[in-house]
Simulated assay, not measured.
Amino acid sequence: MQTISWGQTGIHSSRIGLGTWAIGGWMWGGTDEAESIATIHKALDQGINLIDTAPAYGEGRSEEIIGKALAIDGLRSKALIATKAGLSFKPGESRPYRDSSPARLQQELDESLRRLKTDVIDLYQIHWPDPRTPIEETARALEAMHQAGKIRAIGVSNFSLEQMDIFRSAAPLVAAQPPYNLFEREIEADVLPYAKQHDLVLLCYGALCRGLLTGRMHADTRFDGDDLRNIDPKFQAPHFAAYLAAVEELKQLARTRLDTTVLGLAVRWILAQGPTIALWGARRPDQLDPVGDIEASPLDAETLQAIDAILQRHVPEPVAPSFMAPPL
């Protein structure tokens, strides 16, 4: 497993991280604790040492499961935990609201440490920018936690360049977490070059585009309950058919040119883009079986051009991931 260093922190993580939104159950049709714990253990066995979570993933359920999984046989020392703060739920409401006020962040930190059964969080991230709280106040609150030894590194998620500039003026920023995959490439215009310029590591969420890039979906695929994909326009007509057609052609390219799967191509493509980590969402151990087959070597220019041509042919106007943003 290839690793990447986090700035000047001395922290080194695997370039594939385990994404645990689905493990929390919320917006993914529920969860199974025993299977989720087995998935976390499988990730560690595969060389993945970074686990990304958030209190919003099942209102703490994902963190609780991770805490239980890492409490077994001293596994906490083998894992890096990245969690988040700044989203809260009101009683009786299913959608979170943004709150990055210092008092709320301190409360969230204490709750996350308890659920995760640890005394320090390796990467603490603001989940979404909060327009009601000055960014400098939020940054200073996290820097105080860093100085107190409660967190080892600071990150932000879904922040613009201007917001990251303001944040960096008040606290050292190590990481940013944007959506990024073959079908959602908006950050190539701003966040990706910014990360390269300022030595930030990018934790790319949605690396498999919510399952589209696994190659296992078909026109009759349906999603149960509160599954996020029921509100993602990419999984609705007429977009779904176009994306599936692109996946079929990417499958053929991956097989004939690289002797890999479309999933392997999608992850390898992310790793070739710069200071990137691909967050691989899974909630069953078997979903991690292909991890060992992922190559981290760069893709040649001809392959990159062929990928771009396929995308332009099938999804010339890709659907942005903005539908996931919680209300302001």
Rank of each mutant, 00 (worst) to 15 (best):
I23E: 08
I23T: 13
G25F: 06
G29W: 04
G30E: 04
T31N: 14
E33Y: 03
S36Q: 03
S36L: 02
I37R: 04
I37H: 01
A38S: 12
A38M: 02
A38N: 12
I40L: 13
D45Q: 13
G47S: 07
G47C: 06
I48H: 01
N49E: 06
L50K: 00
E59D: 14
R61H: 15
E63R: 05
E63H: 06
E64A: 13
E64Y: 07
I65W: 07
G67Q: 08
K68Y: 03
G74R: 00
R76Y: 05
K78D: 13
L80S: 13
T83S: 11
T83D: 10
T83C: 10
G86R: 01
S88F: 12
F89K: 00
S94F: 12
R95D: 14
R95A: 15
R95G: 11
R95Y: 10
P96N: 00
Y97N: 01
D99V: 00
S101M: 00
L105A: 05
L105W: 01
Q106W: 11
Q107H: 12
Q107M: 12
D110A: 15
S112R: 09
S112M: 07
S112Y: 10
S112P: 07
R114A: 14
R115G: 03
R115S: 06
L116K: 03
L116Q: 02
T118P: 04
T118W: 10
D119C: 08
V120Q: 12
V120M: 12
I121D: 05
W128M: 10
P129V: 09
P129H: 09
R132F: 09
P134V: 01
E136S: 14
E136Y: 06
E137I: 02
T138D: 11
T138A: 11
A139P: 02
A141P: 03
L142G: 02
L142Y: 07
E143G: 04
